[in-house]
Amino acid sequence: MKALITALFVLAAGSAHALNAADYQVGLAAAAKAAEPGFAGFSAQRGETFYRSTHGGDWSCATCHTDNPLASGTHTVTKKTVKPLAPSANPARFTDVDKIEKWFKRNCNDVLKRACTPREQGDFIAYLLTVK
C-alpha cells in the first residue's frame, strides 16, 4: 500500500515541480478507491470533523495543531511550539513524502490507536487546503 502511494505520487509530481499537498492527494485517492469501491472523492467537511474529533481517546489533531490550522500549535506534553499545519500558512508542509508518512503513522497511532485510512488522510488534507 505504502509503495503504491509513493509510486503514484512520483508519477503525479512528475519532474516539473516539487511535491505539494495536492500531488500527495492523487496517490491517496487511488489508494482510497482501491480500498472502497464506492469512494467518490475527498471531503473537506469530513476532514474538518476528523481534525476536531477525539475518536474516543483523549487527544484530537487539534490538541497539538490547535483549533486553527493556520496558527502555531503546542505539543500538549512537551509544550514545544509546532509550526502551522495548513500549507497556506506554512509552505513547507506536505513537501516531503517520508516526513508526511512518518507523522501520519505516529499521530494517527497517538490519536486513533490505529493507522489512518487513505480516505481519512485525503479528507484531512482537503480540509487543510481550504483554510486560508
Partner: peptide
C-alpha cells in the same frame, strides 16, 4: 521508540 513516554516516535 513506538512507545516513547506516551507517544509514538517511531523512526524507520
Amino acid at each position: 521508540l513506538d512507545k516513547h513516554y506516551g507517544v509514538d516516535a517511531s523512526i524507520e
